[in-house]
Design a protein around this nucleic acid. Structure first.
Length: 256
DNA sequence: ATGACGCCTTCCAGGCGA
């Protein structure tokens, strides 16, 4: 079974590109982020034609998350309890024998912006929410965490320590999720590899190798033990048939 | 070379992303 996460940066603008990827990679379960559309505008028909069901937690213009799946999914929770005003950023579903959550964590903007404190508080609420997850279950949370877990995950390495995405405050909160009993599936299989999942559209960042790894699939031990391969699908950060890519690459994992 | 921002919105310049 292939599971995936992808920040698509606007599903309306990205639909043809997403269709290209679904046809070529044939994932079974996909968490999407940054749909930037309301529930009413979600392209259910186009996705059905491609063989995918969807559960959606949308929002007009901003945020928005969804779970696509070959088998119908059952939505469990829409939104992060107590943090609904911070945007449509979390959706938890049951699908294909998994508990599967898709998450778009706040960006924080800059260290002195009010959104940075919101980001920290939001992560604490996420940790509290995930405390309720059965650690013995097959649970996956995938998404755009907007935190660089370690220096290896940033093109600047340790030189970026202390800057946004790389502060101790953010990394401590990311680690508190891991400490709930979750494994970063990419890092689990590739302990020393530097691979990025996001590159700025501007300034030729992609071809210059100036990226970050901020999109992760985290799983409980019951999932980690089944992982046979994980890829950050860099090929889909490039234009395809003249179609523009998201600034994030898809990340997928193959489970036994 | 893989390319030099691209998405959204009471319609178009401005805000935002990471």
């Amino acid at each position: 079974m292939r599971i995936a996460t992808w920040n698509v940066n606007g599903l309306r603008a990205r639909m043809d590109f997403v269709a290209h990827w679904l046809k070529n990679r044939a994932p079974d379960v996909v968490g999407l982020q940054e749909l930037k559309l309301s529930d009413e505008a979600f392209p259910h028909d186009e996705l059905e034609a491609l063989g995918y069901h969807a559960v959606v937690h949308g929002q007009k213009a901003w945020n928005g998350v969804a779970v696509l799946s070959r088998e119908p999914a059952e939505a469990q929770t829409r939104g992060l309890p107590g943090r609904e005003d911070d945007g449509a950023r979390l959706l938890h579903a049951r699908v294909a024998g998994l508990h599967f959550a898709t998450v778009y964590c706040p960006n924080g903007k800059t260290l002195d912006h009010p959104d940075f404190q919101m980001k920290l508080a939001w992560f604490e609420a996420l940790r509290d929410h995930l405390t309720g997850v059965d650690r013995d279950s097959a649970f996956v949370i995938g998404g755009d965490f907007n935190i660089v877990p370690a220096a290896l995950d940033c093109w600047q390495g340790e030189a970026a320590d202390g800057s946004i995405f790389c502060t101790d405050e953010e990394r401590t909160r990311y680690r508190s999720l891991i400490d709930l009993g979750l494994t970063d599936l990419f890092r689990h299989l590739r302990p020393d590899e530097q691979k990025f999942s996001w590159w700025d559209y501007r300034g030729g960042s992609f071809y210059r190798g100036m990226g970050l790894r901020i999109d992760m699939l985290l799983g409980t031990a019951a999932v980690a033990s089944r992982v046979r391969n994980v890829e950050i699908d860099r090929e889909y950060r490039k234009k395809k048939d003249g179609l523009t890519a998201s600034d994030h690459a898809p990340v997928f994992a193959d489970l036994d």
